[in-house]
């Protein structure tokens, strides 16, 4: 019985992987133009458009996109997920990938993002500034300080000399936005680009000191890429004029 069991287990294991030699073409094989791009969730809309434009500009290339929170992507990459390009929403996540020796090249800063106050479209608490959000009784939601958008929110509060008393510290900026769009919260600190994505459900309220808490998005080709040439071209495309235009339209700033 143990032998039969081992055979079954090995059989299952063999089905699970494609075999180390079969799937990947020889490195530096320029004929294969398909790449997988791991990008931060906040880049979903602009990178989907950018990938289409890239495929049009480089015939024969094919871009597969994988969006998730930056730290999730770092986790996937360090566990060996196959990818060719990594675009992160913060420099810390990129630094972790660099420390793990997974980068082919130095990362390039290609976009910036700042914070805004999102309020429900009818603005029930009548908020017009960051100071308003700090009033007692106002239900304001931010990211937890342990995640990038929360660290940025803390920097912003320090720069503006405002102390928010949040009713909730969410793990992700989408959860903050969700609390605002559903009307549970009176205000939430989110990225400018999130306010754009949310459309009519929320209103964005600019913050004077937003410029003192800027988030920089780096992009880099990965060392294990099967199509290093295409990966490099995509990095240049995203950080070049086309990328700047698409990202600018989505609300991102220039680095």
């Amino acid at each position: 019985m143990p032998a039969a069991l081992a055979a079954v287990v090995l059989g299952v294991a063999a089905c699970g992987t494609d075999g180390p030699d079969a799937a990947r073409p020889v490195p530096n094989d320029a004929s294969d133009g398909s790449i997988t791009v791991f990008a931060a969730a906040s880049l979903t809309a602009p990178f989907t458009e950018l990938a289409g434009q890239f495929e049009a500009a480089y015939p024969g290339s094919q871009v597969t996109l994988n969006f998730a929170g930056s730290s999730d992507l770092v986790g996937q990459l360090s566990e060996g997920a196959p990818a060719d390009v990594f675009a992160s929403a913060d420099e810390e996540s990129m630094a972790k990938v660099a420390e793990a020796d997974l980068l082919a090249d130095e990362p390039v800063a290609f976009a910036t993002n700042t914070l805004q106050l999102a309020v429900p479209s009818d603005n029930p608490a009548g908020i017009t500034s960051l100071e308003d959000a700090a009033r007692p009784g106002v239900k304001v939601v931010v990211c937890a300080e342990r995640v990038p958008c929360g660290a940025l929110a803390a920097r912003l509060q320090a720069a503006a000399d405002v102390d928010l008393v949040p009713v909730s510290e969410e793990s992700s900026v989408t959860d903050v936005l969700g609390k605002v769009t559903s009307g549970q919260a009176d205000a939430g600190l989110v990225y400018v680009t999130d306010v754009r994505t949310a459309g009519a459900a929320v209103r964005g309220i600019g913050i004077r000191e937003a410029g003192s808490a800027v988030n920089t998005y780096p992009i880099a080709a990965l060392a294990d890429s099967a199509s290093p040439a295409t990966a490099q071209e995509f990095v240049e495309f995203a950080s070049g004029p086309v990328g700047r235009a698409v990202l600018g339209a989505a609300g991102f700033g220039a680095p």
Partner: peptide, 19 residues
């Protein structure tokens, strides 16, 4: 929501720590 001591239960803490 998720606030320490008020609404952040153990599974939510795990989710946040994972980051």
């Amino acid at each position: 929501g998720s606030l320490e001591g008020t609404t952040r239960t153990l599974p939510l803490e795990v989710y946040l720590q994972r980051e």
